[in-house]
Design a protein around this nucleic acid. Structure first.
Lengths: 155, 155
DNA sequence: GTACATGCAAAAGCTTTGCATCTTC
DNA sequence: GAAGATGCAAAGCTTTTGCATGTAC
């Protein structure tokens, strides 16, 4: 379980497990890793009447990135967002220009597979790729379906 | 030429051409579109003894994005960066984890080609892709070459 | 008991905005 | 001449930091 892994990782590095750290990690598990920003993590805990200061949220998400539990993301807004790292299940993001929802493209919809040959090309040209990040923008299935229905009706 | 296109675009929209707008666009042309942030554009002009206020730089880069002359980028720092849009020559970015340089992967190194089949897959699943953005991180050819030399010497 | 973590408020960094003044059309 | 653009300073946001207090080991 994630929380136990965090305890182990902190112990190994001679850092300390605290209720705040546990609660903040749990927010990402409970929300199904919904690309929350620090402010949202803070509000989520406030709502649950769990007292953690904003400064601690910021310090802790940094720590969790450092330890490999979270990944830091940007979606062309003014804030950093975070998601749980799942090394077995790499994914890319699709942001809907209509409803704003962020989708995770994983498994059979993951671009990992097609990218392999391209990364070989980069390697062949001297670039050593350590990680990559792809973001798509467009219209998601739900929104395009909606528009289609509207269009049909208007005929 | 870019500046003329800007004049035309502004005239068409009943907006005004000003020396500041021309100068700011020219910064990107003169620097070969080096992913500058607003602060850097401001300093570049200061150095050339061209007086433009920071507020105008911010307002103008926004405008130039709006008009399709610039693209706004983020590289996991706290600032927005901008580059000239070149529709004929789409490219992705490679950021070196060692020296920090941002490379543009274009032409035969562009991932555009391999992405085509993947985008077809997304389309087939209801996602309408309007744009995408790929960032790679790793070690650039120069830095990996340097490390190789160091390694050889130390033997 | 001590080193480390937290909370609070203040500061910092980037970006936006209100308003008076100036400029383009 | 009027609508729009600029410059300045102030304000707004998100994120970071200093320091006193609290807590895990």
């Amino acid at each position: 379980m994630h929380v136990d892994a965090l305890k182990k990782e902190l112990r190994d590095r001679r850092w300390r497990m605290t209720p705040q750290r546990e609660q903040i990690l749990k927010v990402f598990i409970e929300t199904n890793s919904e690309h929350l920003g620090a402010e949202e993590v803070y509000r989520y805990l406030l709502n649950k009447r769990i007292n953690v200061s904003k400064a601690t949220v910021y310090r802790t998400v940094d720590l969790l990135v450092e330890l490999g539990f979270l990944r830091r993301l940007q979606f062309d807004e003014g804030v950093y967002r975070y998601e749980l790292v799942d090394k077995q299940n790499k994914h890319s993001h699709f942001i809907c220009n209509s409803c704003g929802k962020i989708y995770e493209l994983k498994n059979e919809l993951s671009p990992e597979f097609v990218m392999k040959e391209y990364i070989d090309l980069l390697n062949g040209n001297g670039y050593i790729v350590e990680e990559f990040d792809i973001k798509f923008r467009g219209i998601c299935p739900k929104c395009s379906e909606k528009q289609l229905k509207k269009h049909r009706k208007s005929k």
